[in-house]
């Protein structure tokens, strides 16, 4: 259990965090979400003492972490995944992962075994990837290695700072699923920072919404969806509501046939519900210089599910 007690932080006279009281239970996948400047990353970095609070204290299983003599004893218990993977460019994948195993005093063969096992677990073939350099990896692969590096020494806690924000939507979704699976399998406590409400709702067992250094609401995704505590939370959630695709998106997916008929039935800004309505009256809808059939809409929807 990680407990924040009356945490405040001020930078150059400005209050970045104001009287934060928060308890993160063991085995939770807890998400700190909020717009930039909300203080979520500052809060996260206090857990491994990359930041220190101005007032208040943080306890892990009842132990005040500011009282720990050796800061590395604390850090050696925690995995940390940064935004871009932050792999050391001069070290191979295996060496990058071994960096966190260094403090565990394992034999070389034990290390190799662990690294191989974990790479396989995140769907990277050890024989292919172990000796690669970070520059030979895609963004998604690099972040998988980053996760392995945080996970390989079986920490009780893993901290993740905007870990998926720089990825393309497809890799992002895959890694979110991977993280959910890993959390279920290993049952460690994960504290995850994101500015993306969608991601927060998707991942979290519980989440906290922050704004300008103050807690707006703490709860499960459902609670927050159903009962936003204030207008800010409601708006923040709305902004990140799943958008209804527009006809433009259907066209952008390469669907539809060229049409020479000038007069369009619908605008490209109309959404797919309106398109479906139109198909109830006619079999072919003209949008701009393209004609769409019902089959196009079905194909489009099928593609969305695949993603």
């Amino acid at each position: 259990m990680i407990t924040f007690k009356n945490i405040s932080k001020s930078y150059q006279g400005k209050l970045a965090l104001n009287q934060i009281n928060l308890a993160i239970n063991s085995h939770e996948l807890f998400v700190l979400v909020g717009p930039s400047g909300s203080g979520k990353t500052t809060l996260l970095r206090m857990i491994n003492r990359l930041n220190t609070p101005t007032t208040g204290r943080i306890e892990i299983d009842g132990q005040d972490i500011s009282q720990l003599q050796n800061i590395n004893d604390l850090r050696h218990q925690m995995g940390y995944v940064l935004q871009s993977g932050a792999l050391f460019p001069n070290l191979t994948v295996a060496q990058n992962i071994a960096v966190t195993l260094h403090a565990q005093h394992l034999s070389k063969s034990d290390q190799d075994y662990r690294i191989r096992q974990m790479l396989q677990r995140v769907s990277l073939d050890p024989d292919v990837f172990m000796n690669r350099l970070p520059k030979e990896l895609s963004g998604g692969e690099a972040q998988r290695v980053g996760i392995v590096r945080a996970l390989v020494f079986n920490p009780k806690i893993i901290l993740m700072d905007e870990s998926f924000s720089a990825l393309d939507p497809l890799s992002r979704k895959q890694l979110q699923n991977l993280l959910i699976d890993l959390h279920q399998e290993f049952q460690m406590t994960i504290v995850f920072v994101t500015h993306d409400m969608q991601e927060a709702l998707r991942l979290a067992t519980r989440l906290v919404v922050l704004k300008e250094g103050q807690i707006q609401q703490i709860g499960t995704p459902n609670e927050i969806k159903m009962h936003p505590a204030n207008q800010f939370v409601a708006d923040f959630f709305d902004d990140y509501q799943e958008k209804i695709p527009l006809i433009n998106d259907v066209l952008a997916a390469g669907l539809g046939q060229p049409s020479h008929q000038k007069s369009g039935t619908l605008s490209v800004r109309a959404n797919i519900y309106e398109l479906a309505q139109a198909f109830q009256q006619e079999s072919e809808v003209i949008v701009g210089d393209k004609s769409l059939k019902m089959a196009d809409l079905v194909t489009y929807l099928a593609q969305q599910v695949e993603d």
Binding site: L50, L74, R75, A86, F88
Partner: peptide, 23 residues
């Protein structure tokens, strides 16, 4: 050096010599 890397090294609790000579 990329601050992300420095931060990572710090967060992993790497020893000073390891940080200096390996990274």
């Amino acid at each position: 050096i990329d601050p992300q890397l420095t931060e990572a090294a710090e967060a992993f609790g790497l020893s000073k010599t390891f940080k200096l000579f390996r990274i």
